[in-house]
Structures are given as structure tokens and as C-alpha cells.
Write a protein that binds this DNA or RNA. Structure first.
Lengths: 138, 138
DNA sequence: AACGAGATCAAGAATAATTCTAAATTAGGG
DNA sequence: CCCTAATTTAGAATTATTCTTGATCTCGTT
């Protein structure tokens, strides 16, 4: 797998080794951008690396999240989903088909919070009907 | 407890009975607006109603959420927190002290999503340092 | 006030995502 | 090539939440 400079940079920055397993997990996330859960990543990884364990997938995902190569997407109490989109973006959850889409809208940047709040991160999640389901007119 | 018309209205709208347990759970949430978890609600409820069970607290919370009197606040994988603020608002999570504050900023309403997305709900969560922790200069 | 049907409650068992543990394996620096 | 620390693995453990079952309550009807 060819690694983008972004990837190697972020790995170096967090002092994390790129092991075969982590590479595999990252490749799975880059290959199909459908926000899979840990178990789904596990199943896909096993196809190329049959010996990988679920615990390792969790470990790798944690390492990748820590090195900012992967983002966690939490929707309610559902299993955490993972996302390898490095661009700043928000998520849209379709209540019809259950899919999660990245939305790359530049959000209003100066959030107008009361004085004293130091924002380190803002997260926006939408919920509704995705274009595919809207056109199906379910 | 005196019930606001808002409360009775929403209960009627969802066809839900206001039982003693639900009233107690709602009272707990209204009393201290610190976004307690189900277990915290359970412990506080037990003070006035020692026979209430955790399962019932979960049931009541679910019923109240369904009738739109209470909101769930999910932050990462942490236990769900509950919030009786009926006004439209977002949440601020302080990474320093772990508290969750309601932020009643009017958010930009016309989110500029790509065509075809039907938004039913938008959720904004901030993460950072709250005023108390900022002034402590930790 | 008594009755019956359906909703709700309580206690504990069950579930499921995730984390932990301990032993085996691997990888990079000297 | 060896040593040490990091990583992996498999399975056990954890924990928030849900489910199950039987008991209790509520409300409309008589």
C-alpha cells in the first residue's frame, strides 16, 4: 500500500508504529468509506489477514484514532463506527437505510458561545433522509 | 409537583401516563440540571422513592424521551446522560472536569447540505474547556 | 365500590460492545 | 544477533443497557 505523506506524518507525530495489522485496518477503512463498525472492519480484515483478532482490530483502531488518522463516529448507543476521512466534515445519518454519509460543508466557524468557553472541537451530526431514500420516496 | 402545561401537553401527545415513578424521574432531572446518567438518576430517585428499580428508571427515561420531555446526550461511549431542557440547545463537554453544559446559542438554521438531504434533526456538540476550568487555569 | 384489561413496575438474568489480562510474538536499536 | 519494549492474540471480564417474568397498579366500565 502506498502511504500518503499525510499518513506517515501523522504516524510519526504520534510516535506510533505502522504494523501490518494497523496497515490492514487502515486499508480496510480507506477502501470502502461506509463507516464500518469494529466488527465489520474485523470481518473485512480477515479476508486478507485471516489470523487477525478482534481485540487487535480494536487496538489498531484505537491507535489510528489516537494518531488522528481515523475518526470515531458515535450515533446514539449504536456500535462505534470508524471513518478514514481526514478532511474536516460532519456526518449525516439516514434514519431510513441506516447509512452514514460524510458531509463536507464548511460549517459556521465562529460559534457564538458565551464567554469563557474554549472550544477544542465542534461536532455536527445530522439525522434524516439521504438522497437515495428521498428519491425512493419511501 | 406542579406540572407545566408543556409537560402535560407532551405527555398527552404521546399518550403516556404520568406515573409516580416517571414523575419522580422527571423531577430529578428538573431539580439538578447536570445531565446525570441513568444510574445517577436511579440513586437520586431512591432518596425519595426507595423502592424504585434501575430497570424502571431506564423505562421511565425511555418513556420521557419518547414523549420529548427529556433528551439523551451521548458523548463517545460514555453512559448516556439525560437532560430535561426543552429548549433547542447544544451541548458543551468539558474535557477538564467532565461536566456537560447546555449551550443555548441559536445555531445557523439553514445548514447548507448538498441537494437531496432531508434534515430532521441537527445536533451540535462542543468539546473543550468550560469557563470554570478556564479561569482555574489548569 | 368491584371488575377486567392493559399498562407499568421490580428483580434479576441476559446481551453485546468494548476492555482487560497474560502469555506469545514481533520489531527496532545497539 | 540480542535485548527490551511494543504489539498481537485468545479468551475472560466488564458494564451499560435490554429483556423476561410475574406482581402490581390504573383507568374505564358496570
Amino acid at each position: 500500500m502506498k502511504l500518503s505523506s499525510e499518513v506517515t506524518e501523522r504516524l510519526a507525530a504520534s510516535g506510533i508504529r505502522l504494523t501490518r495489522q494497523r496497515e490492514e485496518v487502515l486499508a480496510v477503512l480507506l477502501q470502502k468509506r461506509d463507516h464500518p463498525t469494529a466488527v465489520e472492519v474485523f470481518m473485512r480484515s480477515k479476508k486478507h489477514m485471516p489470523t487477525i483478532s478482534l481485540a487487535t482490530v480494536y487496538n489498531c483502531l484505537e491507535a489510528l484514532v489516537e494518531s488522528r488518522l481515523v475518526k470515531q463516529v458515535n450515533l446514539d448507543r449504536a456500535p462505534t463506527r470508524y471513518c478514514a476521512n481526514l478532511l474536516d466534515h460532519s456526518h449525516f445519518f439516514c434514519e431510513e437505510c441506516g447509512s452514514v454519509h460524510d458531509i463536507e460543508v464548511p460549517l459556521q466557524s465562529p460559534w457564538n458561545l458565551p464567554a469563557g468557553y474554549l472550544i477544542k472541537q465542534a461536532e455536527v451530526t445530522f439525522r434524516g433522509k439521504c438522497p437515495a431514500c428521498t428519491s425512493k420516496n419511501l
